[in-house]
Every structure is written in structure tokens, then in C-alpha cells.
Amino acid sequence: MKKIRIGMFSWESLYSIRVGGIAPHVSELSEALAAEGHEVHLFTRGHENNDEIITGVHYHRVTCDQIGGIVEQMNMMCENMYNRFLNVREKAGEFDVLHGHDWHPVNVLCRIKAEFGLPFVLTFHSTEWGRNGNRYGDWWEAKEISRREWLGGYECSDVITTSTMLKKEIQQIYKIPDYKLWKIPNGINVGKIKREVDPGNIKKHYGIHPCLPVVLFTGRMAYQKGPDLLIEAAARVLKKKNAQFVLIGEGEMRAHCEYQAHKLGIGNSCNFLGYAPDNTVIDWFNACDLVCIPSRNEPFGIVVLEAWDASKPIVASDAVTLVENFKTGIIAYKEPSSIAWGLNYILEGLGRNRMGEKGNDLLKQKYNWKTIAEKTLEVYEKLVEKHKSSF
């Protein structure tokens, strides 16, 4: 495929404002596309308006006042992205394809499409329904976010989903036809997480006995991610086995989970670290004995790839479709006693190393960014040819 000019739009990236899993996806995919010889311009939020080239990717950061609700903030971001896009387009030339991520940039993508006829691809990383478990009721912002998800799915030429489960969820909620849908998984730069560390020293630094096994949870402390299910499961595990639980992340459920642990009498065995820098998270991936992903809804599960990169076994709920039961991890039902059974199975040493190693092998074969970039370019190629033939 000849060199193409790609406009990538995301509210977060690794080298601007970071929020969650979209940031590594967008930056690392952009780098892989640039490595294939394509010109990638990433429009994203920043603390100031500036331009920078990082690992071959042109970053165009726009400021966005963090006042008002999330919808109001994204309205302002889209307005600023539109103005920046006009400036970049004038200097760099016409773009071949635009690629947005989640609902946040939908307004600017639709505006550019309407004014310049440029088609766009939209990657869904999750849905508002999945994030909230259909619990938002009359919350107008959630309904507006859902409306923009629908609008993006309707206006875009192609939709990329990261898993079969998310594809089905999107089809059920927004009735997007099959011909628009592509399934392309998330990825990781192999070796990003793996480090040679002294697990005992890391545990001692946090007041944990170096010989005690550690179960790691990392992610948003939110209903979707199920940290409360893990706390209840931990109470069951601790009746049979001495262990420690390390939970990294912030969110609306953190205070509830801390109270829950105290009420269950396991507060001394649960370590809530809150938001932690990358080096701390990487240390714990390498120092822990297993990783637990108790999600109620999981569109993909980048934590799975990170755990496999460190060759760690996983206990995951059946919302996580990447894990093959008893081969690359243990699959549990979305309830505490089932999660506890899975944790005990691995803590007792049954297949621990074998599962982590098989996950690492799969990671190298299927979830590296070069492979994912090649699949993404197939979507672009189809879109560019279709766009040309329409003239």
C-alpha cells in the first residue's frame, strides 16, 4: 500500500493527558503505522497547544479546560481539534483517512466529514452501557454519550471493535450492520512490562512479608471492573490461605472497597495504592504471583496482555474472552465464591508457571503491534479505495 496520511483523533495518549487504556492503544498503534512508512498525525488533548514528533508520530495537542461535565469538556475539545486540523491540513496537505477512538472526538469527525467529505473509521473501546452496567437511569450525560456513540457508528465508514464480545454488544445496542464491522484486537509492545526484579524487596517496601503470595488488581476502581467482587473473594481466600492483595487504581468504588475490606476484617491484607506511576505498576506485575481481573463487563482487557508480558497467570471473570480456561488462566463466574476458587487454584501452585508462559507465547504470536497495524491498514485501504471510486 502506498504511503497514506492518517489523522488520528483521541482524547488521550501516552504523551499528553492519560486517562486509561485508550492512551497506550492510540500511541502504540500510531507508532506501528508510522514504522510501516505512513504519515500519522495524532490530534489529542494537552496542557498547552503545541506540536511535537515522537517516534515518528506527529502530535498536535490542544488545550481543553476541565470545567463543567465531560460532555461540555469534549465539546470544547472537538472545537479546538477542528481548528487545529484546519491548520495542519493547510500545511501538510489533504488527509487520506481519519480514525477516531471512542465517543469523545465524534463531533469533530462528523464535522470534518460534512465539510470536506473525508471518511473516518471509529474504534469502539467500550460502550457507555458497558461502563455503567445500564445503571445510569436518567443521567443526561450518559444518554448524550450513548447518542454520540450511535452517531459515530452511523456516520463512520467502518467500525473497529477489539473483541467479539464488544462487537456483539455494539450490534445489539446500536444496530450497526455486519458489513461495517471489523474485529482487531488491542496490542502491546512485547517486553514492555517484563523486568528482572527482586519480588521480596518490592513486597518489603510496602510492608508485605517477602514470602507471602500477592494477588494484583490494576485498573479503574469502578463497578464495571468488579473490584468489590475481588474484595469479597479475598475474604474467602484468606480463610484458607495467608496472602496479600494489592489494588492499584482510582475510581468511585475505591472508598467503598476500603470500607468493605475493613468490614470483612481483611483490611490488613488489602493494600490500596490508588493511582500509581508506570514504574510502580510494572514492579508489581513482576513481583506478584498472579493477576486478577474480576470485571463485570470487559470490552477487551489490556491488563491480560500486560500480565502475560510478565508471564503471570490470570484469574478472570467470564467477561474476559482472551483467556483460555486452564491453559492461559482460570475463568470464573462473576461472583465472589467462583473467583475465590480460581485464586486458590493458582495460589496452591497448580499450573501457575505453565499458564503464564503459554499466555506469553500467545502474546508474541497474536497481540504484537506490527500484526495489528497490518490489519488496521486493511481497513484503511478498503476505505481509501471506496472513497476514490465515489468521485
Rank of each mutant, 00 (worst) to 15 (best):
H58R: 04
M165L: 09
C270V: 13
A92V: 15
C78D: 09
V215R: 03
A316R: 04
L86M: 15
V291R: 00
N83P: 12
W369A: 01
E250I: 05
K203R: 15
S157R: 15
T371Q: 08
K364Q: 11
I53G: 04
I339E: 15
I331Y: 03
M221H: 09
L33P: 07
S30E: 03
V88N: 02
M1C: 11
H41K: 00
K225Q: 06
G191Q: 06
V291Q: 01
N50C: 14
F124A: 11
G130V: 04
E196R: 08
G267N: 09
N344C: 13
I282K: 11
F217K: 02
Y136Q: 03
W11M: 03
M76W: 05
E31N: 11
E258P: 00
D158M: 08
E250L: 02
T218P: 14
L109K: 08
E155F: 15
E196M: 10
K358N: 13
N107H: 11
D283R: 03
V323W: 00
L343P: 02
K183V: 13
C64Q: 04
P199T: 11
I160G: 03
M355P: 01
G226S: 11
W11N: 04
L238W: 01
H38P: 03
K183G: 02
I17N: 02
A114T: 06
L383Q: 15
S163D: 01
Q224D: 02
I53P: 10
P227L: 06
H125P: 00
K382L: 09
K194F: 14
E72I: 10
K183E: 14
N49G: 07
A255E: 15
L347C: 07
A310T: 07
F245H: 10
W150G: 10
P185T: 09
E169R: 06
K3A: 11
L238G: 02
I70G: 12
N242W: 07
N344T: 09
I202V: 15
N83G: 12
V40F: 01
V108A: 06
P213T: 05
K241D: 07
K183Y: 05
G351Y: 02
G200H: 09
M165H: 08
E258K: 07
L230K: 05
I53Y: 05
N80Y: 01
G265E: 04
E169M: 06
V88C: 06
I202E: 03
G219N: 05
L109T: 12
M76I: 12
G46D: 01
T218E: 11
V26E: 00
V379N: 08
L151K: 14
C156G: 07
K241T: 13
K192H: 14
R111I: 06
W341K: 10
E324C: 11
N189M: 06
C288T: 12
K327Y: 07
L347A: 08
F95V: 08
C64D: 00
R89D: 15
T376I: 07
S10P: 00
N189S: 13
D102N: 11
D318A: 08
P210C: 08
S163H: 05
L212H: 14
V121Y: 10
H41P: 00
L247Y: 08
D318L: 04
V281I: 13
E306Q: 14
E378W: 04
G301M: 05
V384E: 07
V237I: 06
K386S: 15
N189T: 14
G359L: 01
E48Y: 08
G46R: 00
H209T: 10
N75W: 06
R5A: 13
E324S: 14
G69T: 11
G274C: 03
P24D: 02
R18D: 01
N83F: 13
